[in-house]
Design a protein around this nucleic acid. Structure first.
Lengths: 335, 335
DNA sequence: CTGAAAGCGCTAACAG
DNA sequence: CTGTTAGCGCTTTCAG
C-alpha cells in the first residue's frame, strides 16, 4: 500500500494524503475520507521515501565507549527517554573502548542519514578533531568539555576536589591516587587536578610515587591496589577516580587484611549502585548521569530546530555522598 | 555531491558508479576512473536513496525494557558488537518497563525501515501477540521462549532449581521466595517452578505464606525483605528471583541484625557484578547475557540471509556460583 | 561490459 | 483549499 493507492481509495490526490499526514491545509471532508481509508488499510507513509524527500530521518546517532557501565547506561537511558518523547529514534554505535572506532562511527554517521550526533567522548585525537570539524551536522559532546562545541558535562574537578578534601578531613594524611589516563580530560586530568588541589589546600605535598594508573574497571582497580599493598606500602587513604576502581581497591584492601574505613579510607567518584552495597559502603560524589543524557538530548532538539545561536556548554554539579569507607573511627561524630 | 555529478566527473554513467559501489561488472579502466573521482571528492552514496530503492536499511531495531540494568546492558552489548561487525546498525527503543510501549515500538518498527527486530521480552499480552503476528519482518525474541518464534533464552528453570537446591543443601529448611510477576514467564514463572521443584525433591512442602512478589529492583527486594522481617518472621533462607532483589534483601537482613550466610542464607540469579562485592558475596547462577545477545544477533543475520527454514529456539545454560551468602557455618567444609 | 531509462514513495512548489 | 508536477539519489532491468 502506497500513497497513490491510498489516494485513489480515498478519492483524493496524493498531495491531499501527504497533507493529511503533515498537517497541511485540508477540508474536513477530505480529511475524513482519508482517515477512513487509512483506518481501513492500516496505511502508513514510508519512512524511507520520506527520508529521501525531506533529507531528514528523525534519527539521532549516539557514539558511546561501552554499554556495560552504569554511568554510560544511565546517560543513554536519559537520552532515549527524552528523544522518544519527541519522536526521534536512537541509533547506537558502541565502540568497545576503541578510540579509532569512535572516529569511524562518527564518520559513518556523517553520511548516513542521522539528523544529529551525540558523542560520549573520552579522548580527543587529531583524527577526532578532523572528523568533528567536518561533520556538518549538529553535534553534542557528552562528558567532556570541548572548546567550540556544544557540550554537556560534569564538574569533575569540583567533585574530585570535594571528595579528596573529605578524605583528608577524615584523617588521611597521604592519600594515594588511582586514576585513569589524563588523555581523558574529564575523568583523568580534571579529577587528578581536583585531587591535587585538595592536597595543596591541606598543605600536603603531592608525591610522584603516590600516583597510579588504572583502566575503567573494578578488576583494574583491584590489581593496582593489590600491587601497591603487596609492595608493602600501607597507605592511610586511597582516592580513586571512579567507583569501579574504588570497589576493586576496597576488595584488595580487604584481602590484605585491612579494614576499609578504619585502617584505610577509600573514595570513588560517580556514586554507582555498586558502591552502595559493598562490604564497606563507598564514599563518592554523585554525578547526574541520567540528567546529562536528558540535557544533551534537549540541547540536540534545540539545535535541530535551529534555536539558539553559537555553542552552548552545560556543566552539571555534584554532591558528595559520604559513607563508611571514610569514617575512620569517627562513627560517633559523623552519624 | 551525488551520483550524477560523480559520474560526470569520472566520465562514466551513473550505472557504472552504482556498480562500483555494489560490486557489479566493471572494467578496470572505469573502476580506476571512478576510484579517482571518489578519492578526490570524498563522495559517498546516499544511504537514504539507497534505502528507498532497495527497500533495505541495514538497520535492526531492538526493543528493551530498560538500559540501566546490568543484564540488559550486557545483552545489548553483545548484540551491538555482533551487528556492527556485519555492517548493521542498531536502532534502540527503550520502553522504560512499560508493556504498552513495547507494543507501540514493535508497531513503529514494523513500518519504519528496519530490516528486522530483536525483542527483549518480559510479558506477552494479546496485543503483543497481535503485533508480533503482523510484523512481516524477521523477529528474534530474547530472554523468553515463545512458541512459533525465533528465540534465544536462558534455562531459567534449571538455574533456579540448582540454586534453590544448593540453598536447601546448605541448611535452609524453609527458604522463602521473593520473585517477580509470573506474567514474566522466564524470570517469574520458570524460576518459581525451579524453586518449587527443588523444594519438592527435598520433601519440603511449599507454603503460600512463603511466597512474595517484588519488582525488578534492589529497592523492591529491600522493601519486601524488610516487611517480612518486621513482621517478626525469621526465615532460614531467602531465594530471590534476581540478584538485584537478593542484594536488597541482604541489606534488609543486615539492618535487622542478621548475618547473611550464618543466620539466614540468601541466593539470587544472574551473577551480577553487584552480587560479587556485597558485604556478604551472593550465591547466584551465572546466565550468559552477553552471549545471548550475540546469539540473537547471529540468528537475526541468518534470517536476513533467508538461511535456515522454520523457527529456531536457542536455550543457553547456566552455572551455579556459590559464595558466602549460603555458607552457614560451613566455612571449613566449603573452602 | 556499459548506458539509458524507469521508477522506489513521498513532499513541496506552483498554479488554480 | 486542491491537484499537478517535478524531483530527492539511487539501483536495476533492458538493450546493445
Amino acid at each position: 500500500m502506497n500513497i497513490t493507492e491510498l489516494a485513489a481509495l480515498a478519492g483524493v490526490s496524493k498531495a491531499a494524503v501527504s497533507r493529511y499526514f503533515n498537517n497541511g491545509y485540508l477540508s474536513e471532508d477530505k480529511r475524513a475520507a482519508i482517515a477512513a481509508a487509512v483506518e481501513k488499510t492500516g496505511y502508513q507513509p514510508s519512512e524511507q521515501a520520506r527520508n529521501l524527500r525531506t533529507q531528514k530521518t528523525r534519527q539521532i546517532g549516539i557514539v558511546i565507549p561501552r554499554l556495560s557501565s552504569e554511568s554510560t547506561a544511565r546517560v543513554v537511558d536519559g537520552i532515549s527517554l527524552t528523544l522518544a518523547d519527541k519522536g526521534y529514534r536512537l541509533l547506537l554505535a558502541n565502540t568497545a573502548n576503541d578510540p579509532a572506532k569512535e572516529v569511524e562511527y562518527l564518520d559513518t554517521f556523517r553520511h548516513s542519514g542521522v539528523d544529529g550526533v551525540l558523542f560520549m567522548a573520552s579522548v580527543f585525537t587529531p583524527e577526532h578533531e578532523s572528523v568533528l570539524k567536518n561533520m556538518h551536522l549538529p553535534v553534542v559532546i557528552i562528558a567532556q568539555r570541548h572548546e567550540g562545541y556544544n557540550c554537556v558535562y560534569h564538574d569533575d574537578f569540583g567533585a574530585a576536589h570535594a571528595v579528596a578534601a573529605r578524605l583528608i578531613q577524615r584523617g588521611s594524611r597521604h592519600p594515594i591516587y588511582i586514576g585513569v589516563t589524563a588523555r581523558d580530560y574529564a575523568a583523568g586530568y580534571a579529577r587528578h587536578e581536583g585531587y591535587l588541589a585538595a592536597l595543596k589546600e591541606a598543605g600536603i605535598a603531592p608525591r610522584a610515587e603516590d600516583m597510579f594508573l588504572a583502566q575503567f574497571s573494578m578488576k583494574s582497580g583491584y590489581e593496582q591496589a593489590k600491587a601497591i599493598l603487596q609492595s608493602g606500602r600501607r597507605p592511610d587513604g586511597i582516592f580513586c577516580a571512579t567507583d569501579a576502581i574504588a570497589v576493586g581497591a576496597m576488595q584488595a584492601c580487604r584481602e590484605a587484611g585491612l579494614t576499609v574505613g578504619r585502617d584505610v579510607l577509600v573514595t570513588g567518584i560517580g556514586d554507582s549502585a555498586m558502591g552502595r552495597v559493598t562490604a564497606v559502603p563507598l564514599t563518592s560524589a554523585h554525578l547526574h548521569y541520567k540528567t546529562s543524557g536528558q540535557e544533551a538530548a534537549q540541547l540536540m532538539l534545540k539545535l535541530l530546530k535551529r534555536q539558539g545561536s553559537g555553542t552552548r556548554c552545560i556543566q552539571l554539579g555534584y554532591e558528595v555522598v559520604e559513607r563508611e569507607s571514610t569514617k575512620m573511627g569517627l562513627e560517633s561524630e559523623t552519624v
